[in-house]
């Protein structure tokens, strides 16, 4: 009795072709987890939206409407969302074999992501110095820094990961078949998609 006997069996049923590669499936599973994480954070933000401290005088405490500034955030959002487009151009260039063009678009994506992180830093600096909004100020502060912070952390992780891949690819250490750029782009699109939800909730609906 050996495995050979099993394998040599004639007219065996074919396996269904897998739609995704192993790595893609792994990433999709990971994104499910991330989706669950962000859903929790977003629900928490909604629960505490408009929550006041007992005995709070209106206008005394920072709220979304009196402290969130749209200007910088819109610039950040444009950068982040257009980076989804640039990474798409980068990958289609890579598929065509246009290595130089790919590196340019991919590098641009990294810079746009970096702008978002730095921009968020400036936004937070303003909130802390001008409006004295800290996680300990009120539940708006707690939930705001938690939600935006978690998202920004994801952007930062994406920037670091993409930088490593960019450097490896610039040195031509990765084979053209390597799935890493494709997979990091899926992650990047996910982070961008989450931002659309967060931006709508925090800066439009909740403001």
């Amino acid at each position: 009795m050996s495995t050979a006997a099993l394998a040599s069996d004639a007219n065996h049923a074919p396996t269904e072709p897998s739609r995704f590669t192993t790595r893609e499936t792994g990433l999709l599973a990971f994104l499910c987890t991330e989706g669950s994480l962000f859903t929790t954070l977003i629900i928490t933000y909604i629960i505490f939206l408009g929550e006041k401290m007992p005995g709070e005088i209106p206008g005394e405490m920072p709220t979304p409407s009196n402290s969130l500034d749209l200007g910088l955030v819109i610039i950040n959002s444009i950068c982040l969302l257009s980076s989804s487009l640039t990474i798409y151009f980068a990958l289609s260039a890579r598929k065509r074999g246009a290595h130089g063009l790919y590196l340019v678009w991919f590098g641009l994506t990294i810079l746009l992501g970096l702008e978002f992180v730095v921009g968020t830093g400036y936004e937070w600096y303003d909130l802390m110095t001008k409006y004295h909004l800290f996680p300990s100020t009120n539940t708006f502060g707690s939930t705001f820094y938690l939600l935006i912070g978690f998202h920004c952390l994801h952007v930062l992780i994406g920037v670091v990961t993409m930088s490593i891949i960019w450097a490896f690819d610039a040195l031509r250490w990765l084979t053209p078949k390597c799935e890493a750029p494709e997979i990091v782009s899926w992650y990047w699109h996910f982070v961008d998609g989450v931002w659309v939800v967060i931006f709508t909730l925090v800066y439009i609906v909740g403001r």
Partner: peptide
């Protein structure tokens, strides 16, 4: 993940004085 998120909120409560 919801559990991890709750744990992070608790950490913020304990270390940064958040109010979750």
């Amino acid at each position: 993940p919801p559990f991890a998120a709750a744990q992070f909120m608790l950490l913020l409560d304990r270390f940064l004085g958040a109010h979750f």
